[in-house]
Design a protein around this nucleic acid. Structure first.
Lengths: 209, 209
DNA sequence: ACCATAATCATCCTTACGTATGATTAAATC
DNA sequence: GATTTAATCATACGTAAGGATGATTATGGT
């Protein structure tokens, strides 16, 4: 019926690129998945969309990752490998917080994914829940240390201080609409992120003596 | 095949209750929807689960709300009607923040839904996006006022201060796993919420002069 | 050049889910 | 009490989406 419908404009071999390269393909799928999962969440993400975004056949997702679930695990587990960037115990709280905010610029998709994952209570996706706990405890020690160094008032529980700091640091990604409504800026934009990092650092600095 | 399978233990008439009561039924569906949508998000929530939780036939969701989408709109639109609790311009920042944190105890499901809604970028669910903007601006004025009153240092942009405060205030619900990892407490528990409200207030108080 | 195998793809199948349809029953009105 | 209508329910249908299956083609080894 339909005559000469244009061949699906798949990823073109492009220059001297290999046209089959499993590593590159897997990487592309993972990138696409981070974006899709991060933007829509697991249930709303479509494997077809991920494949399209990656420019590959959707069956490759099963081939390489054992399906949607497997791909998600793969991607989600990376959300801790990154972001762990151990802050050295010497740096003041204000600086740590500032760095944390800036780091969201590096891979916002992954950061969003982390937030969603965190929001979801089901104990299934317990990919390294133990590692996460340990990491948090480690960070908590750091906060405690900096508090003793005078970075924060002595009459607040360091655990709660840390929760507050993490909440504030995540605000750009966790509350994008709020950010837009208040500042008029795009929460993803380097413009906003940089200024927020700076302002938040300034704020935290005021906590010290 | 299966003989005498027990009749589905539907909601029993219970005492002198009317067995047909549209208002009660609608309310039950909405409550169930808040919980399901809040816990799983729109896509992952199942109409059947909502109906089961409400103890009604799932078709009633279409009957009363025009389907899953309609029900979501209904529920989501309520997420602004509540929580707007205008804080009077006289109260200091520390108190406002504390109140905000405590208010999440009232309806955590709805609060979670709000967070998810906020995280989702699609401009479709723009239920009262304008109202939200206006409300935020109003709050911003309040913050600005309190800053001039000395509740916060003068060298921070009130808009960014407000983002930070909102982020910190939402932390209990936005980062439950983090809360658990750091404090060992259940983020929903009155125990945690109350202490967090108090600690955060104390922290904010330290910003003032 | 040829072969073996891994990589990629198109197509089909199954299931789960949301909704449409029609039946049934409680409650209101007369 | 009869009739009517709204509320509730059981079932059946359509669709979309994820995964299975088998075909094809590139690539590396010989």
């Amino acid at each position: 019926m339909s005559e000469a419908l244009p061949r699906k404009p798949r990823r073109s071999p492009g220059d001297g690129e290999r046209q089959r390269d499993p590593e590159r393909t897997k990487a592309r799928i993972i990138d696409a998945a981070k974006a899709e999962f991060g933007a829509k969440g697991f249930a709303a993400a479509r494997v077809g969309d991920i494949a399209d975004r990656a420019g590959v056949n959707k069956q490759l997702i099963s081939y390489y990752f054992g399906g949607k679930e497997g791909l998600y695990q793969e991607v989600a587990s990376g959300s801790f490998r990154t972001g762990r960037a151990i802050s050295d115990p010497g740096s003041p709280l204000a600086e740590v917080v500032s760095q944390f905010v800036l780091s969201t610029l590096a891979d916002p998709d992954l950061a969003r994914l982390f937030l969603r994952e965190n929001l979801t209570e089901d104990a299934s996706g317990d990919v390294g829940v133990e590692a996460q706990r340990e990491f948090m405890q480690q960070q908590l020690e750091h906060v405690r240390g900096r508090q003793e160094a005078g970075d924060a008032p002595a009459d607040v529980d360091p655990a709660y201080l840390m929760v507050a700091l993490m909440g504030a640091s995540s605000a750009a990604l966790a509350l994008p609409r709020v950010v837009r409504a208040i500042t008029g800026l795009e929460p993803d934009s380097p413009e906003f992120v940089r200024k927020y990092a700076e302002q938040l650092a300034r704020l935290v600095a005021h906590l010290g003596k």
